[in-house]
Design a protein around this nucleic acid. Structure first.
Lengths: 174, 174
DNA sequence: AAGTATGTAAAACGAACGTTTTACATTGCA
DNA sequence: TGCAATGTAAAACGTTCGTTTTACATACTT
């Protein structure tokens, strides 16, 4: 299997489960089954590896929420969390752990959040037939809230977000 | 000024701004203006200091959201963020950075989230006149979402949450 | 006036950090 | 056949980590 994929997959899992800073390089090499020399040949540095993990996760996540209705968006989130688990947004966590002081990471985070926001606007537009910035912002807040409340409220948080979103969309549609 | 207060205040600021793991003990002693010997006399360990910071923050935060209506709740959040800034939930961040593997911290986090949830249930009950678990869960999700979306969406996230909450409360009231 | 707390400054602890280096094995292309 | 390229294993790099210790100063308490 391709080394870069193995490395990024292992790194994402460890960063997600134990935190970025709390995950040492030896734990990464062991989990990926590669030597530290090879790790640095491929990743360059720990910061670069973190940024690469975020870039790859952005691709996977954006594919997951490639839907055409608000309801499908929250169904997609439910699927995502059932498979990935709920430990908060890995992008916001990366920014928080680095204090936003690592440029390559800060950039990966804001690129993702920008794309995420655009995607939600598109979904809202497809659902109700027109662009609606206010409703889009509300859906974004509900999605972000479901993601983080799910850490300690599990499925109930996503169900609540989905129901609330349905009310807001119906109200706008009429 | 009392040393423990000085220490916890400085620690909260540093943990919030730069991350828990990324903040070293020497940075804490320097910011608090105390020796490392005194720090360990008072805090015991870094984990204990983190837990103490969370316990104290829980007190401040709960006082901040001591309100009687859902709208006042989001007004309180707006005030909080204007003063404290928006860097996500310090409790969820602590759990994430430690992977939930530090008992004293995990306990402080779940104690806070439990109290937080109870408070929201009380506010909803006071606002609409009766307990409403479903609406309470939706308000909790909106609050959590506003807290985290505000990191990159600033005031717009809180305004959106407030407006959405108003719609949901009005719908329930009628 | 003596003794007990409580503080500082600074060195030292071993362990772990991210990263680089040395030495060697394997592979694939000229 | 030989030379890059690419991998591993393992030691070593200097730094920083959380924590403890040593030595000393400054107060209260009785």
């Amino acid at each position: 299997m391709d080394i870069t994929i193995k490395l990024i997959t292992a790194a994402e899992q460890l960063f997600d489960g134990h935190g970025y800073m709390a995950t040492g390089m030896d734990r990464l090499t062991e989990a990926a089954g590669i030597s530290s020399r090879t790790l640095y040949k491929h990743a360059g540095s720990k910061s670069a590896l973190m940024a690469a993990v975020l870039t790859e996760r952005d691709r996977r996540f954006m594919r997951q929420i490639d839907v055409l209705s608000v309801d499908a968006l929250f169904a997609a989130l439910e699927d995502w969390i059932r498979i990935e688990g709920a430990r908060g947004c890995l992008f916001l966590r990366a920014r928080a752990e680095t204090g936003g002081e690592t440029p390559e990471i800060a950039e990966a985070v804001s690129a993702h959040k920008s794309a995420f926001r655009d995607r939600i606007s598109d979904i809202v537009a497809a659902d109700i037939g027109d662009a609606d910035p206010d409703l889009s912002e509300q859906i974004l807040v509900l999605f972000e809230g479901a993601t983080h409340a799910a850490v300690y409220r599990d499925g109930a948080a996503i169900e609540a977000a989905r129901a609330a979103a349905s009310v807001l969309v119906e109200k706008t549609r009429s």
